[in-house]
Design a protein around this nucleic acid. Sequence first.
DNA 1: GGAGTGACTCGGT
DNA 2: CACCGAGCCACTC
Length: 120
Amino acid sequence: MSFPTEAAKPSPQQRIWQVVAMIPEGKVSSYGKVADYAGLPRRARYVSRALKQAPDSLQLPWHRVINAQGKIAFASDSDAFREQCYLLRKEGITVNHGRVALSEFEWQPDLATLVLCLPF
DNA sequence: GGAGTGACTCGGT
DNA sequence: CACCGAGCCACTC
């Protein structure tokens, strides 16, 4: 078949998923940054929504997305919090008191990567 | 169409 | 570092 012409432009939600999917193992990003990369400035809350709604089948590295302060967004006594902690540490990311050192682990994509990988 | 709600962010105290 | 308040924006009643 040829190129899927009907797959014109991905929805904002799909763009968010795409950005999250390209966060490399061992790195993290914030809701706000993901929104920016997806071409949706000031939509950090929309990113959280998109992640919550993302089907498991996509196997998104949702745990690599934390808030702008480097902290895990879930309540520290929740199962989700523990799960995210576990997944991050498994990738070699240091998590202390629910917090990750962004200076050390924040994903810093180069412009070329974004331009080449994000069709918009 | 107004009010409430978030896996948010930023600046001030 | 913690707590607050205001701003933000999509979504649901």
